[in-house]
Design a protein around this nucleic acid. Structure first.
Lengths: 340, 340
DNA sequence: TTTAATATCGAAAACGTTTTCGTTTTACCG
DNA sequence: CGGTAAAACGAAAACGTTTTCGATATTAAA
């Protein structure tokens, strides 16, 4: 079963390949009659242009790459969904790769995408990423790149983020306003910008409200897992029996903490109030339901693609592109893990 | 900045394009010396083969397509992860499209993938899919196709599934064994094979254990959401005050039901025992934790890709491929929403 | 009727590879 | 040193498009 190409259509119609091609793209120098003819037989034979041949000529793949640290994750899968939805509308396909929070893998995946000639790349950095040469290489290659959520401030490209610092400030302030005096913080590892910013927001909220910052109340987690939440919740109780509030870097950990508190009889929020971060679906369901910061994953995906799309178009026309950073709004979601 | 192709390498080295190409692919008819030379300058200039040119020649895209009903879903994102992981090892990239449970969209996405010349397609059907012409077209086009989880039994292709019927039987039997006499069932819509099979497993377990099947105890849900779980839990209590167990099609709904029961003071499992399906992470966290059937998403993704990969290779060598159906093991996870 | 203008078409190059097959170079043996 | 076999290389076609430019056919103007 031979594939149906422009050639077979041309032969069937006694035309040249060029005319057939031009007919399909509505060139002015082909008569309406033959245009109709060509389009009819194209329908008839179910002709589909060979994407590779097209791309080889036009240098456009109509494909973008997406690299995220972890697919099985409520926030990231929301982002994926947002990206795919917008991309599809513009005729772009999305190749998804995951870095598994590894710098080495991230580099490799980036390389893969480049060699696949994607038109642009969306990336959320791995926690392990401390060097940025692989990213800067993209910039110098003039390949459109947009970073989202877990970004590197040093890199000169467009970004879609939330104001982690402000959000963390809001979260911590809410704890303070609801009466907490000794507020602990479960933070993420030292590398990703987010955990730094959230920590800083936490700290600033304390000092702004005349609460002395006590570094022994800050616990640095590694993989931000449910189990770590369980573990450090227990640890915290052992270390400090006067803590009455915790701001936790991410909901999953907070949920681990809540279950542990439930188990060992620490009452939430009567004994300890908890605020999480991300607003996973799960957080509304656990008991007590978790007060948290809503992180708009779907919107973030949409925005990231929109910017990337614009940059791709600019590049095609050889116009200068100026990078921009979009900050999406977060919102405090008040639930039962804090006092009214 | 001109792109570095075989041509520029050839010119730089005073060789022909053919020799350079062959050197890179370790053809026997090029000397070790020039091979070394070529490979060195390839490194130096960061040469990356143009994927489109390669594919145009070889007819291989080294890309597969994946269509799923919904990305933001614990089970499906696990599948995605499994697929990507295995695909990457074999040098394949994955293009992900979502059907949003719509038949029309599914058709469109399939078309997109075909015109992008993917080497094979993995699909989990939309609930709305009741016709299968678009799938049979793929088969006649000899494009490797593997269906997983939500499949159509009619289609003649390889499949990766679980034994929904058996699993549902196990779940229901467990309710019976733990003392339930009046067991309700929250099932999915009429179309996807899964909900049918799970329903049948439920029914058979009842009759096998001398419990009369009562169709008024079976509730047909539409979108299988948390909210539906809440709603039908309330409804059930109104309709039947003697029910002492429910087998629920999917965990998300079960979690909705549990929260509603918690809210209105129905004790789980004292008043009503609940068994879910899928084993979402959430199910281990909710209170009471949910007894459920584990559905191995990650493994399913891996297996599906493995089969697809084999079929792709067979086709390339023009060997006959015989379709197979792999059934993955499920497991009953006993937790607190059922008695002992 | 001839010329100019316009409408319609086709030839051919190009994109960057891969691969076949023929040509040249080198090495070896008598 | 001549001849042959083997080793090393290159020319060229092909994959299926797009697009430029030239060629032909048609029409309008002179």
């Amino acid at each position: 079963m031979e594939p149906v190409t422009l050639k077979v259509i041309a032969e069937k119609l006694g035309l040249s390949i060029s005319t057939v091609s031009k007919a399909l793209k509505d060139y002015p120098d082909v008569s309406k009659k033959t245009k109709r003819l060509v389009k009819e037989t194209v329908e008839l034979l179910h002709y589909k242009p060979n994407a590779f041949a097209v791309n080889l000529r036009t240098k456009e793949s109509k494909t973008i790459g997406l690299i995220i640290p972890e697919v099985v994750h409520h926030f990231f899968s929301s982002v994926i969904k947002g990206i795919i939805a917008k991309a599809e509308k513009k005729g772009y396909l999305v190749i998804i790769l995951q870095s598994n929070e590894s710098y080495e893998l991230e580099k490799k995946q980036l390389d893969l995408l480049v060699s696949k000639r994607v038109d642009g790349i969306l990336i959320s950095l791995a926690n392990g990423t401390g060097e940025f040469k692989h990213l800067n290489d993209l910039i110098t290659q003039e390949l459109p790149l947009v970073m989202f959520d877990k970004i590197a401030k040093i890199i000169n490209c467009s970004k879609v983020i939330i104001d982690d610092r402000k959000a963390a400030y809001t979260a911590t302030k809410y704890l303070i306003d609801s009466g907490c005096k000794r507020i602990a913080h479960f933070r993420g590892p030292l590398l990703p910008q987010n955990s730094i910013d959230r920590f800083l927001g936490y700290k600033k909220a304390l000092t702004d409200h005349n609460i002395i910052y006590d570094s022994s109340l800050v616990y640095i987690l590694k993989d931000m897992s449910y189990d770590e939440g369980v573990h450090f919740a227990g640890q915290l109780i052992k270390d400090h029996n006067d803590v009455d509030g915790i701001f936790i870097n991410t909901d999953l950990v907070a949920i681990g903490a809540i279950t542990e508190f439930n188990r060992i009889g620490v009452k939430v929020p009567e004994d300890i109030s908890i605020v999480g971060f991300s607003n996973w679906f799960m957080s509304s369901v656990i008991s007590p339901s978790l007060t948290t910061i809503n992180q708009p994953g779907y919107d973030m995906g949409q925005e990231a693609f929109k910017i990337l799309y614009k940059e791709i178009k600019k590049r095609k026309q050889n116009l200068p592109v100026k990078f921009k950073t979009i900050e999406l709004e977060t919102k405090l979601i008040k639930r039962a893990s804090t006092n009214n």
